[in-house]
Design a protein around this nucleic acid. Structure first.
Lengths: 338, 338
DNA sequence: TTGTACGCGTTATCAG
DNA sequence: CTGATAACGCGTACAA
């Protein structure tokens, strides 16, 4: 780094004390005489001394840093998640090291973040393979999973949301309030837990109202605008009869709306549309999107709290499922409120 | 951390070599006999050895990590910026430490990220005070500013966008194509450089077409939906005569659109609206938003490249201004394209 | 090509 | 309350 940064020894000399004393006033966990402390502080000030983090970590065996592994940081879904995590970490006085795994092959993700540079890790769905997960778990490294239930062999806490019930309530709304019977489902990524559970909720709703499940109505959404746009286009062009679309997430719902708009189908009169997540944009769409509110920011905040407890070796719940809530707007056919 | 993590010595013993050799095959900068290297690698594998980052940094005096200081990470504007920076860092084989400064008082931001834990820093507008900036600059620490020209006393490279010309082109479009003459401006945060330059572009456009500048037409937008919503509401309720709104950014434009919708004013017939940035949501608004495209992702990518060169002690440009581009949609009054 | 030994800048322990 | 000194885990001259 830079040539002659001041070190703790320089501060000690300047203040006329030992390095141990300097260390003490800086960390504050050991009492130091007030005037001595003041001398040290002013020496720090005049020398512009900044403790070297690596040396500190090496000696103290703590990093005071949390790690976050997410597929991407720029998606709209991740905004509130990041905000919650940021806030939680900040409140706990911890730094946050973020790694977006999307561009990196799963194999290479192993050691960018781990026991060597963080005190604990927050892992979002699909961001780490099972092998590394179990390695970290085996050495007792604090781990919290987000939106992903761990393999049954591993006892790692999860924080996620109530996907199934939320999806079911939404689809039942479409059925009972708006009398929709041919409801297409834009499913998310294959094997993704949120997606799977939302599909389950969708099927439960159908069953509960004695509607047949038609596999042809389940198409790819991938939580992605473009994919959803294409899928809905195909659906429409094949003449498939539908009167509603339940999109696995709001992002895909945007694509669905665009496809319907382009095809000249009226929403919600002809085809109702609903999403999941209640991203910021949901209320600004045309028509405003009926969806399920996922408390994503809260997920982040809670996950950090659990991770912090884990780091302190305190007891934690092994599974936290935050409630979701139906958000009625106009894309389902409900009237606008004043 | 965990009790008995394997250390380099364990690997050395397991492979029957010295720790120096292990270090060499791991870093790869010094030739090692192929079979020896293989033995080491398999020892690493069986022991699940992961080098301790702090020890490595302390010994090598490099962190291989870039730092990013931004006011917030969850705003829509920052999505492409983060993506560009992530990508750039990843390509350069560097880790990325991100700090959102918004919640932290300016005074306390000093040493969360700096010469002690990164090799260089990317600093977004208003994220660091001048004192810390000059301290870092003084010790020769690599720094790149984003969307913010450095104090003239400091020679720190900047990467930003062509705000003035972009704003001017947009406002001229409103004037010449749509014959608007009472154009309100929703300005961004006081003293923020982007905001200042966009206002300058706005005023230049007015002057160029001999339109009077009316201070009453310049109101607070703060790059924020709610603030813009309130400002436009006030503007409308005071009976101020306007036929267009140029919003300092897309975010504020959303608020403006909502206020206009609620007031029953037709966009663009009665009042045209335009924004700046071309965020992802711009095309999904009603009507689709005419705006200026800011190459935000590219800003991130370029900034990382400059920072990397700086770290390598290579020559760099001191000022990189990326071009902006008018994006015509329908909120200005232009017809939709097929 | 490989091994030895020292240094990196702190914190923690143990005397005083 | 304060000082000396041994870790902390790895990189890297230097020597072999």
């Amino acid at each position: 780094m830079s040539p002659n940064r001041p070190q703790i020894a320089d501060v000690a000399r300047e203040a006329g004390v030992s390095i141990a004393t300097v260390s003490r006033v800086l960390s504050g966990n050991t009492p130091v005489a007030p005037d001595t402390a003041e001398r040290v502080r002013s020496a720090v000030e005049t020398l512009n001394y900044v403790p070297h983090a690596a040396a500190r970590i090496l000696a103290s065996r703590r990093t005071d840093t949390l790690g976050l592994l997410v597929p991407e940081i720029s998606g709209a879904f991740f905004q509130p998640l990041l905000r919650g995590i940021e806030a939680g970490a900040s409140e706990a006085g911890l730094d946050l090291l973020i790694h977006a795994t999307q561009t990196i092959p799963v194999k290479a993700r192993h050691h960018t973040l781990g026991e060597h540079n963080t005190d604990g890790l927050l892992v979002f769905t699909e961001s780490l393979d099972e092998k590394e997960l179990s390695r970290l778990n085996a050495i007792g490294f604090p781990l919290v999973l987000l939106h992903q239930t761990p393999p049954s062999s591993l006892n790692i806490p999860v924080v996620t949301i109530e996907n199934r019930a939320g999806a079911r309530a939404l689809v039942e709304h479409l059925i009972t309030r708006h009398d929709r019977r041919r409801i297409a489902f834009l499913r998310g990524p294959e094997g993704q837990e949120d997606s799977t559970l939302r599909e389950r909720g969708y099927r439960e709703a159908l069953e509960a109202h004695h509607l047949p499940f038609d596999p042809a109505l389940v198409v790819r959404g991938e939580f992605d605008r473009m994919v959803a746009f294409e899928s809905v286009n195909t659906l429409l062009s094949t003449g498939m009869q539908i009167d509603a679309i339940f999109s696995g997430d709001d992002e895909a719902a945007v694509g669905a709306l665009q496809a319907l708009l382009q095809a000249g189908r009226r929403v919600p009169e002809e085809i109702a549309v609903a999403g999941f997540d209640d991203q910021v944009l949901a209320g600004s769409l045309t028509p405003p999107l009926t969806t399920v509110r996922a408390p994503t920011e809260e997920v982040g905040r809670q996950a950090v709290q659990i991770l912090v407890r884990l780091i302190k070796q305190e007891e934690v719940v092994s599974r936290l499922i935050l409630p979701t809530e139906l958000v009625i707007r106009q894309s389902c056919g409900c009237p606008a409120r004043l």
